[in-house]
């Protein structure tokens, strides 16, 4: 029962800060609300006993990606309100479209229930030890390829950020 309350609290926090990301006038407030959303989702991972993912999520998203966003906002001095926001009818149409997508998704998923194999709080698959074994045994090649992807992304980012013309 206690976990249910934590679930409700984390979900409400994530949804509230997700909405506030869109409603905030200044980009820096949006970034901070997005960080709050990421921490709420990290709490969800802990609730699912996915400890490895929780740690990686906090390090990568709340640590690395948020710092990148904050640096971009501050270095480029972008912390101004949008000069020409979209007209109101475009916003109304967009919100209608998003709400209808949500309606369709919820309508599809309503009443769906997975046949539970394992109680999520008692499963052991999310621990670092178990996931590490599987990652280095069965998914060795994708892991190495993803490191090459990282290297490529780093080279690309440095190349794009260089002063002189490419």
């Amino acid at each position: 029962m206690f976990t249910n309350y934590i679930f409700y609290f984390l979900s409400a926090l994530a949804l509230y800060s997700g909405v506030m990301v869109l409603l905030s006038k200044k980009p820096i407030h949006s970034v901070l609300y997005l960080t709050l959303t990421f921490f709420a989702i990290g709490g969800h991972y802990i609730l699912l006993n996915a400890q490895f993912l929780a740690i990686v999520h906090i390090i990568v998203y709340a640590g690395a990606i948020m710092v990148l966003f904050l640096f971009t906002v501050m270095l480029l001095n972008l912390n101004k309100e949008e000069r020409s926001p979209k007209p109101i009818w475009v916003k109304a149409l967009a919100i209608t479209a998003g709400a209808m997508l949500g309606l369709v998704l919820i309508g599809v998923f309503r009443g769906y229930d997975l046949h539970l194999v394992q109680h999520p709080m008692e499963t052991q698959i999310g621990l670092v030890k178990e996931l590490g074994k599987i990652l280095y045994r069965d998914y060795m090649l994708p892991f190495e390829v993803s490191s090459i992807l990282f290297l490529t992304a780093m080279v690309g980012a440095v190349l794009l950020g260089k002063k002189e013309q490419i």
């Binding site: 997700g18 869109l22 997005l34 966003f69 972008l78 979209k86 916003k91 967009a94 709400a99 919820i106």
Partner: peptide, 23 residues
């Protein structure tokens, strides 16, 4: 689903490229 829809709405209503990336 709700969080995903918030992201979709964000992509549709924002003009700022940074906000679209965040969505």
């Amino acid at each position: 689903s709700m969080l995903f829809c918030i992201g979709v709405i964000g992509v549709l209503i924002k003009r700022n490229a940074l906000m679209i990336l965040m969505s």
